[in-house]
């Protein structure tokens, strides 16, 4: 298995045993990607990189050689949706249905919630929750993603629309709950990582990336026809 002999002869077991202190949670020596033999190796590897330094986005997004790109994108997106829960929790405290009655970012768009039979104008907090719940269902769907080691091309194609939808959570937080966004971003660099991710793998069009998070990002709005 993925055990490793230490100098003193004891074996490293990468486990969080009951009673582990919060600061020691998942604090174990890194395991090289080549030595991970689990079906969840890609998730393990991505989480390990994030834990080591969430700011080192280039490294986090650097796909190991001979890695299947579909799985790589899929596992990253799972990780994004999971970490977005953190943003959703913060928004729950401030983004109320009475104040944010619609899912908006800039005033150009009102996003309709796709979780319903007929898309409807959910309040922003519901949009956020429904979108994350829907993404969780889709990304765990036995129909589209039955395996975590190989993904068929038609399912990879579905990742783009998930990206587009969850990105709106960032944009809503940025334009309407700036302090929450900034606090969260400082802690996780999630929006920056997400932006680089979708740009790198061409999962969203540049016009839709309206949060000016990357230095080279120019102001949104005037898009070409």
């Amino acid at each position: 298995m993925s055990k490793m002999k230490m100098a003193d002869g004891s074996t490293i077991l990468r486990r969080n045993r009951p009673g582990t202190k919060a600061k020691d949670f998942c604090r174990w020596p890194d395991e090289p990607f080549e030595e991970m033999d689990s079906t969840l190796a890609v998730q393990q590897y991505i989480q390990q990189l994030i834990r080591r330094d969430p700011n080192n986005i280039d490294l986090i997004l650097k796909m190991p050689e001979s890695q299947d790109e579909g799985v790589w994108k899929y596992e990253h997106l799972r990780q994004f949706c999971m970490e977005l829960n953190g943003l959703a929790v913060r928004l729950q405290g401030e983004c109320h249905p009475e104040t944010c009655t619609q899912m908006t970012a800039t005033e150009q768009w009102i996003f309709l919630c796709a979780a319903h039979k007929t898309p409807k104008e959910c309040p922003a907090i519901d949009y956020t929750r429904h979108t994350l719940d829907g993404a969780a269902c889709l990304l765990n769907s036995n129909k589209y993603f039955p395996s975590r080691v190989s993904i068929k091309e038609s399912s990879v194609a579905k990742l783009g629309s998930v990206c587009r939808r969850v990105y709106r959570i960032f944009s809503h937080a940025y334009f309407h709950h700036r302090s929450i966004f900034d606090e969260f971003e400082t802690e996780t660099c999630l929006c920056k990582r997400f932006t680089q991710f979708v740009t790198k793998y061409n999962l969203m069009s540049k016009d839709n990336l309206i949060v000016p998070i990357l230095e080279e990002e120019n102001t949104p709005g005037e898009s070409e026809a």
Partner: peptide
């Protein structure tokens, strides 16, 4: 559009983002 599962709903949503100004035409391609 009447999907049997919610995952499908995600997939088949009509993406009805509605625009509120004249940039509409430049954005239709989206």
């Amino acid at each position: 559009a009447q999907p049997s599962s919610l995952a499908e709903a995600m997939m088949l949503d009509t993406e009805a983002a509605v625009m509120a100004n004249l940039e509409f035409l430049s954005n239709t391609d989206v």
